[in-house]
Design a protein around this nucleic acid. Structure first.
Length: 214
DNA sequence: ATCCCGAGGG
DNA sequence: CCCTCTGGAT
């Protein structure tokens, strides 16, 4: 996509949503990290439903370790991949407690060493908790970037590099959230709602879906 | 490339 | 029924 169009693309999303935030619910950095790990291949709504009760009881890594893997599973049974996630969250909490004084590390490379934390999760935590200008390329951003032509790439890392290179300075902090929200509510995987899309004229996606009959 | 895996929507 | 949801580890 041309530079001027990229700028206009973000300008419109920014106008519609001046202060975008994650829809995950959390009370501190540690809870955010846990919520993001749980959100892999799951919806924010589903994660929030489970963490509502969990985060009332567990606010620190030490409390999570005390709860234990089986206790955690009871809370997150309704989330996909819950066995692997419970195992990772307990292991990760033990490491935070033992090696990091119960604090969440503030750099991506250290975050990535934690079990269950890959590049995408680390990028979300760096952006959302610490205000870093990172681009976490999830299923939504990968789809929106390729479908619209805003940030095409054959894999998630290629899309991330393209976003880092092409995103104008004023939008770098919030681009991540704008693209997520756009992908979740308008540029949806199955039936993109192009008839009410604010950037349809800048988009290369050909089969623009018609508005449903009133 | 494959496995992990529940809820919600169409 | 099938597809999708803020992926990571092997």
């Amino acid at each position: 996509m041309k530079k001027a169009d990229i700028f206009e693309f973000y300008r419109r999303l920014a106008e519609l949503n001046p202060d975008p935030r994650t829809e995950l619910e959390y009370g501190n950095d540690y809870q955010l990290l846990v919520a993001v790990v749980l959100s892999a291949q799951a919806t924010d709504v589903g994660v929030n439903k489970a963490t509502r009760a969990l985060f009332r009881a567990v606010k620190t890594p030490a409390q999570m370790v005390a709860l234990g893997e089986e206790g955690l599973k009871e809370h997150i049974k309704t989330i996909g991949l819950f066995n692997a996630k419970a195992k990772n969250v307990i292991a990760l909490s033990q490491i935070l407690e033992r090696d990091f004084g119960g604090e969440v590390p503030r750099d991506r490379d250290t975050l990535t060493t934690l079990p269950g934390v890959g590049r995408k999760t680390a990028n979300v935590v760096m952006n959302t908790a610490f205000g870093a200008e990172t681009f976490a390329v999830d299923t939504h951003i990968f789809r929106v970037g390729n479908r619209t032509g805003l940030a095409p790439g054959k894999d998630v890392l290629a899309v991330e590099k393209r976003l880092e290179k092409d995103t104008p300075a004023p939008f770098r902090r919030d681009a991540h959230h704008w693209l997520i929200l756009h992908g979740r509510y308008i540029c949806k995987a199955r039936k993109p709602e192009c008839w009410r899309c604010p950037v349809a004229d800048l988009c290369r996606y050909k089969p623009k879906t018609p508005a449903p009959a009133a």
